[in-house]
Amino acid sequence: MTSESKTEAAAIREEAPPRPKKRDVHGWVVLDKPVGMTSTHAVSVVKRAFSAKKAGHAGTLDPLASGLLPIALGEATKTVPFVMDGRKAYQFTVAWGSQTDTDDTEGRVIATSETRPDEAAIRALLPRFTGTILQTPPKFSAIKIAGERAYDLARDGEEVALEARPVEIDSLVIVSHDGATTTFEAECGKGTYVRAIARDLGQALGCLGHVAHLRRTRVGPFSVADGVGVETLRESPDEALAALRPVKSALTLIPEIVIHRDAAARIKRGQSALLRGAEAPVALQAAYATCAGTLVATGSVENGEFVPHRVFNL
């Protein structure tokens, strides 16, 4: 580099605004992700908006999908499994008459049909797609096969064979139907693929189908009312700060146990603590402990003792 180039580069560095210093931020941001954004990019947007040191998301949302993507900052990352294991709700539209290799509009068409289903025929099939059912995930999915993601293998042209597995679909109802497309609302458990529902419905109806539109409206304890948009985070620091939810907001679906200071001190050292009081539980598979309103730990209750699994530094 010449002396002139070095001088110019130094001038640019001096003019560029300094990067904000990363800081400890703890809590949840329930991002209302737009279509076209990857989950990884969404995490970067939230992390940058809060200048946070640490962030992670609770369940991938495809780029072609919109809706809720809960993002954990700091100590909230320790509660991610509780959100990921929660029930989810979607609104999605199935376009009839063609099947794609990705089971959505991103893939190439691999089969077509001139048949279009009527609403009565669709409605008659829905009971087969509710409750605990066996579902084969799309080959373009994040499931690992011998350490490789299925979608990477599929993109490389390799044959991907995924086994059917049980999933829980609590409800599947028709919102609207116009002949060419049908819009549904679904509530389901972890591991359910909406794209697979569209694919399997289309095959069962003999008309084929794929997802044309997908929006996630609930994830665990978080609903659309909790969502915040990307532009709000980028343009309004005050509104962004107001959107930051407490770490324990991810834990509202499991019991809270209020403990005293001595018990909190033991738990923070990784030791179990005896729970006192007539109403104290004897056994719980999952619970969280708080002291003076502050989250101390998540864990279980065994023989009347709180056993910490994850301890928080808040």
Rank of each mutant, 00 (worst) to 15 (best):
S3I: 14
R13N: 01
A16C: 04
R23H: 07
V25D: 02
W28C: 02
W28I: 13
V30T: 10
V30D: 07
T38R: 09
T38A: 10
K47H: 05
A52T: 10
K54H: 12
K54R: 15
G56E: 02
S66R: 13
A76W: 11
T77Y: 02
T79G: 02
V80E: 05
D85L: 06
D85Q: 04
K88W: 14
W96R: 01
T100W: 02
I110P: 08
E114T: 08
P117C: 03
A121K: 09
F129P: 03
L134A: 09
T136W: 00
P137Q: 04
S141N: 01
K144R: 15
G147T: 13
A154P: 03
E168A: 08
D170L: 02
V173S: 04
G179R: 03
T183Y: 12
A196F: 10
G202V: 03
C207K: 03
G209K: 12
H213R: 13
E231Y: 04
T232P: 04
T232S: 09
S236G: 00
A240G: 11
L241W: 15
V247H: 02
S249P: 13
A250V: 14
A250L: 03
I259H: 09
D262W: 14
I267F: 07
R269I: 00
A280E: 05
C291H: 07
G293T: 15
V296C: 08
G304H: 13
F312C: 08
